[in-house]
């Protein structure tokens, strides 16, 4: 019943989007005030009714997970075991000889068990980047696996020297001033002073609990794009706004950032999918 409700809700939204506005609005174009108001109203309604269309992707992901043989994939708790997987990632994987976070591990398993080349995996992971109303199988898989950890507390093992190393590297990159606009992650997401970028309140890695609130809800459904945003896609968007070159998912950089962010978020309960405007 809930599934039907959700499906109809999403379908209704999509229709409203198509009818009321000239097809799909390109991401990141500046919105008109009317559209801003519509989005806020829609967001508020969804919050009030407890609807999160992101759950649709989990249903889709359950099938895609089987389709791509990911039940053979070991997320650190045994092959195919996804309950609590997200909560203990990133971790070191001896089979890959690498520290990996959830999405990097999914990418690795797609190569191992679905016969994809590294290029195909990258393309698969980025299939919904820069789009809206995109029902991507990759996003669906990430959503499905992430939701299986709901209710568990993030518990990254920072005592593991390999994970610790990535954490420290991630921390240094978090503070690295770089690029033609001199930004680092900390420009916006550090410090004690509460600040806004336009109307958006910024979370800070220095204020207790805020990093946890920020990362524990990923993948997150974005009302303005009518699709979920995975953690690596979010990194890519931040990095684009920082005027750095184009980000590569499943890279060591992604893992280092995840190690730092999830490590900082240790103890926070996972609540996926989040929802945002």
């Amino acid at each position: 019943m809930r599934k039907i409700l959700l499906t109809s809700a999403v379908f209704g939204l999509a229709c409203a989007g198509f009818l009321g506005y000239q097809t799909v609005k390109a991401q990141d174009q500046e919105l008109s005030p009317e559209e801003e108001i519509r989005l806020v109203q829609e967001f508020n309604r969804m919050m009030a009714e407890g609807i999160n269309p992101g759950e649709i992707w989990a249903e889709m992901g359950k099938e895609a997970f089987k389709k791509y043989n990911l039940d053979k994939c070991d997320f650190g708790l045994g092959p195919g075991k996804i309950e609590g997987a997200l909560a203990q990632l990133p971790r070191y994987f001896p089979d890959a000889k690498r520290v990996m976070d959830l999405e990097t591990r999914i990418g690795w398993c797609l190569q191992q068990y679905a016969g994809m080349t590294p290029e195909q995996v990258k393309k698969f992971a980025k299939q919904c980047w820069g789009k809206s109303q995109c029902m991507g199988e990759y996003d669906a898989i990430v959503m499905y696996v992430s939701m299986a950890s709901n209710g568990q507390k993030i518990n990254v093992n920072l005592k593991d020297p390999q994970v610790r190393r990535m954490y420290e590297i991630g921390k240094q990159i978090y503070y690295a001033r770089l690029g033609p606009w001199d930004f680092n992650c900390a420009t916006c997401h550090a410090g004690q002073k509460e600040a806004r970028i336009r109307a958006t309140k910024l979370w800070s890695a220095d204020r207790p609990g805020e990093a946890g609130q920020a990362v524990s809800i990923f993948p997150k459904y974005l009302v303005r794009w009518s699709q979920p945003v995975t953690m690596h896609y979010r990194y890519a968007e931040c990095i684009r706004q920082m005027r750095w070159p184009t980000f590569e998912p499943h890279s060591d950089l992604a893992v280092a950032l995840s190690a730092f962010l999830y490590g900082t978020a240790n103890g926070t309960e996972i609540k996926v999918p989040g929802i945002g405007r």
Binding site: I169, I173, R177, L178, P180, N184, W244, D252, L253, A254
Partner: peptide, 27 residues
Amino acid sequence: RVLLSGFEQDPKFLWKLEQDESQRICS
């Protein structure tokens, strides 16, 4: 090395990842 691993290797844009002295200090 980790930083550089995270970007598309388009030579047109890699100059963006070169830090100047002040950026190095601030980091």
